[in-house]
C-alpha cells in the first residue's frame, strides 16, 4: 500500500500469462517438429555418407552444439537486422531453436540408423526389396524404436531451452513472467508458477521415457 508503482498480481493477468504459455508451447512444438524432420534427414545422410561428407557435416553440427544457444539467438537476430531483413522474434527464434534441436536429433537418429545391423538390410534386399523399401520398412522402424527414449530426452530439453528465446524479445512464458515480476514485485509466487508449468509438462514425459527405456532393456 502507498506504493503506486507496483500493482499486485490479479486475475486480470491470466490472459497475459496464458499468452506466454501458448507461445512457449507453440515455439517448442515448431522446433521439435522441424528439428525432428531435419534431424531425421541429416541423421540418415550421416549414417550413409562417406567419410569426407561426414567430417564436413559433423563440423557444422558440432559448432551448433558447442556454441551456447543464447549466443546463437543473439547472433542470428543481429545478423538478419544488420543485413536489412529484420525478422519477427517468433520466426528468428523458431529458426535458431529448430536448427539447434536438429543438431542434437541428427546424432540421435544417426545412432538409430547405425544400430540396425547391415545383415538386416542385406536380408531385406535379398527378399527383393528396393533400397528405399529397405529404408522405409526395415531400417527406419527398427532404428527409430531403438532411439525413442533419447529422442524424447532431446525434445524435453528443447521445451526447456525455448525459455531462452525470451532474449530476442519473444513473449514466451518466462518473459511474460519477468514483466509481471517487474510490475508486481512478487517474484517468488510468479516464478514458482512458471517452474510448476515446466515441471508438469516435462516430468510425466521424462517418466514415460524412463519407463520405455526400462522396458526395452529387458
Amino acid at each position: 500500500m502507498g506504493n503506486s508503482f507496483f500493482t499486485p498480481l490479479s486475475w486480470n493477468d491470466t490472459g497475459f500469462i496464458l499468452t506466454g504459455v501458448l507461445n512457449t508451447v507453440t515455439i517448442s512444438l515448431v522446433a521439435i517438429i522441424v528439428g525432428t524432420l531435419l534431424g531425421l534427414a541429416v541423421g540418415f545422410i550421416r549414417a550413409e555418407a562417406n567419410r569426407f561428407t561426414n567430417i564436413l557435416l559433423g563440423g557444422v553440427l558440432d559448432a551448433l552444439r558447442s556454441v551456447p544457444l543464447i549466443i546463437q539467438l543473439i547472433l542470428f537476430s543481429t545478423y538478419v537486422g544488420a543485413i536489412g531483413h529484420p525478422l519477427d522474434p517468433f520466426v528468428t527464434g523458431s529458426i535458431v531453436l529448430s536448427l539447434y534441436s536438429m543438431a542434437f536429433m541428427s546424432e540421435v537418429f544417426r545412432g538409430g540408423f547405425e544400430s540396425v545391423h547391415h545383415s538386416m538390410a542385406t536380408a531385406a534386399r535379398s527378399l527383393g526389396m528396393s533400397y528405399w523399401q529397405t529404408v522405409a520398412y526395415i531400417r527406419l522402424p527398427i532404428g527409430l524404436r531403438a532411439v525413442f527414449p533419447s529422442w524424447l530426452g532431446v525434445a524435453l530439453s528443447v521445451i526447456k531451452d525455448s525459455a531462452l528465446v525470451s532474449v530476442i524479445g519473444y513473449m514466451e512464458l518466462l518473459r511474460t513472467s519477468e514483466q509481471l515480476i517487474s510490475r508486481t514485485q512478487q517474484p517468488l509466487e510468479i516464478l514458482i508458477g512458471v517452474g510448476l508449468f515446466y515441471f508438469i509438462v516435462s516430468y510425466p514425459l521424462s517418466l514415460y521415457g524412463r519407463y520405455i527405456e526400462r522396458k526395452m532393456a529387458i
Partner: peptide, 23 residues
C-alpha cells in the same frame, strides 16, 4: 533431482537471482 531435470536452467537462475529476494 526431478526439479533440476525438469525445469529450464534460465528458470533456476531467475529463481536464485529474483526469487530468493523474497526470503
Amino acid at each position: 533431482v526431478e526439479i533440476a531435470r525438469n525445469t529450464p536452467a534460465l528458470f533456476q537462475i531467475y529463481m536464485a537471482y529474483f526469487g530468493l529476494g523474497a526470503f
